[in-house]
Design a protein around this nucleic acid. Sequence first.
DNA 1: TATGAATATGAGAACGATATCATAATATGA
DNA 2: TCATATTATGATATCGTTCTCATATTCATA
Lengths: 326, 326
Amino acid sequence: MTINEIAKLAEVSRATVSRYLNQGYVSNEKRERIRKVIEETGYQPSSQAQMLRTRKTRLIGVIIPKIDSHTISRMVGGISTILSKSGYQLLLANTENNEQEELKYLKLFRENHVDGVILSGTIFTKKHIQVLKDYQVPVVILGQYLSGYSCVYQDDYRAARELAARMLEKTRRLCFAGVTVQDEAVGRGRLQGFLDACHAAGRGWEESQIAQASFQVESGMTAARELLKAHPDLDGILCATDDIAVGVILYLKQQGKRIPEDVRVAGFGDTQVAQIVEPNLTTVHFYYKTSGEEAANMLLDLLEGEASVYRELKMGYRIVERGSSL
Amino acid sequence: MTINEIAKLAEVSRATVSRYLNQGYVSNEKRERIRKVIEETGYQPSSQAQMLRTRKTRLIGVIIPKIDSHTISRMVGGISTILSKSGYQLLLANTENNEQEELKYLKLFRENHVDGVILSGTIFTKKHIQVLKDYQVPVVILGQYLSGYSCVYQDDYRAARELAARMLEKTRRLCFAGVTVQDEAVGRGRLQGFLDACHAAGRGWEESQIAQASFQVESGMTAARELLKAHPDLDGILCATDDIAVGVILYLKQQGKRIPEDVRVAGFGDTQVAQIVEPNLTTVHFYYKTSGEEAANMLLDLLEGEASVYRELKMGYRIVERGSSL
DNA sequence: TATGAATATGAGAACGATATCATAATATGA
DNA sequence: TCATATTATGATATCGTTCTCATATTCATA
């Protein structure tokens, strides 16, 4: 079924059918004839033809570093809700934490047809900036702050600083298990918050109080081992993610430490495991799903001309104190 | 940049450029000219025009019930790996466990002319079968068995039967916390495995030994409460998912029960929490990521004509015994 | 040296919609 | 009543590819 056949059956011109479909002028008489024919035939306009002609695809490219992560899948959930409500579809690209893949998909999406892109990256290189600079369609960055670009991100710095301050009150020697500072948000932001809180509390710190982990539980165990080796007297570890914190807790318990009596631990993200690990984990709740929704809305504004200029949205947070730091 | 401009610059016909792009006959001389022009201009064929002309979109629709679930995101990860390797893109639809949404997306995808669909559903109604019956593009069902259709699914029944048999050896009164039997795989399959294991072991069972939960941890707690009320002497609970099992464990511990000494517990799925909850959870490891990969490969076979007929693939499993049932 | 494959090329149609333009009919206002 | 919006319609061009077909050239084979 094509628009031509509909036109023939309804005894009108192809143009009139198109107008019917796109709310143009159509007399009641012909409108009814067309409606009937479309209903009988179950006609659906070819979206490919529409895409070619209108240069709009109603597809949004979503680039994420890892699909099987609670924080990210929550964001994707939020994005998906908003987009589908507005009749857009979601083209998903999973980069498996490979920045090269991010660039590849940015290019692929541009060439291919998306109306806009939501990029949830971790590490931004100069290459990224360059590709983003003259990108033909609107892009919203999710989870990272990037000056001059539309972005939705968490207040990692303040959250870390506040949580660290609370931890400092209860500890004599607080250590930090973070991730690479190439990751501006989770790496740099949370570390800086920790450092500034130490400074504000008049507490010095040494390089050896900071361990670098990755995003897995296992790396948290390794980090805890390193920290404990360098500082056998440590009585607190602030971890850049809940998964790291879980690894830290597992290792500390293995070593016979009691939590929180001997060592207080906290994480970030308020993922599912925070309420399951024992003791329950003190952590920072970020509004990931809402962030995804906001990013999608921001992109829609950009697409539908409500706003032609970028906006930067910093999301709030909530510290959740549980057994691991009491 | 269009193919016409490339043709003009390379001083050949549009058809020759098209042949160059689609490995048709082109002389070395012209081939080189075209190559050079394309390189200089950075020309990329319009995928919309290609879609319209070839009636292929290189898009695969993926319908899932919930994005922020460990099992599902692992499957999506597997799908994504395979598809992107073959130059297909993934159109994601998240139904939030709403079967109506599934139908909606099946229709939407068909209209949008995806090349194929991977459907990871939980509940199949007659409506589903009817829509699938005369679906114009290949569909692979993931996670459920559907006779006569390409599908990749877990051996829920055997896994449940085997795990239940092991649990029965160590318990006098084993209960079951499952999900709705409308879900053939997780609901019906795992329950039936449990029942048949009871029968094989010469153990009767009463209706009240079976509680119905949903997919959340909280529902596991409720289920445990019901079961414990009906059977204060229970010494084992087999749970249809890890999350339910975690809820069960949390509730039992709250009630002062020791695990596994007083009550043995096991789950299904081997999700992250299984290794974090205390005691660690005995569970069934399913190869979710591999299932996703297999489903994607199956679809590609269907698409690329390697196989024109459906295949049914039942995946193996591995029982992982941990502290909760020892 | 005919004969037929295999190789090579371009003109023009087709895919299925929307956009532009010309034009007619009707409604509105001074 | 006349000028001017507003409503209504269809013919035709266009989006950027690939497909079909006609035709020409080269090469191996009988």
